[in-house]
């Protein structure tokens, strides 16, 4: 029996005159991996930012577990709410004034760093290095380590393979797949990369012009009759 973790109900979001999300509905289920795909500017990242609470939506509601409408939370409650998420940002967003040890300690002071480093396939020698001294692939791994170190209820992966060469992208996809499967963590992935979808998504939501045009099981994605999504998957503009 699938249990709903996040319920997005009729949310609208616009910036000045540009409508980004239009009465969007989406359910995210516990322990499942959902991939949100769509072209650039379709509203994928805005949607996840609304879900996390980094951005306020105009109307509608987002519920998380027993929390009814996250928009009504106070500043302090919102801070607690945000701490339920572990996020791998598109550019990793490691604090560049801190070394890797300090970056990871920021997420969780108690946990052993050696364990988490081996989980993401990084040597201990990087702990004293600064983010600028690491390759983009390594930064992504550290970002992922930081995201899971705080034992989040929901893991958000924003374009996890963007900017990586195909070999490193494949390694990151496999790493995420192993972590997601092992930890059974609810995951939302925003991606352009169909390899990420095939590798670790249980369900897929295709977003176009601010609405979900297609939602279904990842393994049925190629049976979809939605022409926009077929074009997207085949890389036809």
């Amino acid at each position: 029996m699938r249990k709903k973790k996040i319920i997005v109900k009729n949310i609208n979001k616009s910036f000045k005159n540009k409508v980004v999300l239009k009465k969007l509905n989406l359910d995210v289920f516990e322990s499942e991996s959902l991939s949100i795909i769509g072209e650039s500017g379709s509203g994928k990242s805005i949607l996840t930012r609304c879900i996390v609470g980094l951005l306020d939506y105009d109307d509608g509601s987002i519920s998380f577990g027993k929390l009814d409408n996250i928009k009504t939370l106070s500043d302090k409650e919102k801070m607690n709410y945000m701490s339920k998420f572990g996020i791998l940002f598109q550019n990793s967003a490691l604090l560049d004034s801190l070394n890797i040890r300090e970056n990871l300690k920021f997420a969780n002071k108690k946990n052993s760093l050696n364990e988490i480093l081996s989980e993401v396939g990084l040597p201990q020698s990087i702990l004293e290095k600064y983010p600028s001294e690491l390759s983009v692939g390594m930064q992504k791994r550290v970002g992922l380590a930081r995201a899971i170190l705080k034992k989040p209820e929901v893991l958000i992966l924003d374009e996890p393979t963007t900017g990586l060469d195909p070999i490193i992208a494949r390694q990151i996809n496999l790493l995420i797949k192993n972590l997601v499967r092992k930890k059974k963590i609810t995951t939302i992935t925003v991606t352009h990369d169909m390899d990420s979808v095939y590798e670790f998504a249980d369900y897929v939501a295709f977003l176009k012009n601010g609405i979900i045009e297609w939602y279904g099981k990842a393994r049925k994605i190629n049976q979809s009759k939605n022409s926009s999504m077929i074009k997207f998957i085949k890389g036809i503009n």
Binding site: M82, F89, A93, L95, D96
Partner: peptide, 21 residues
Amino acid sequence: AEIGTMKVTEQIDALKTLSTN
């Protein structure tokens, strides 16, 4: 420049999700 860079590279958002105001 420092805070601006942190803003555009989402480091400030990362701080928020790490329970840091």
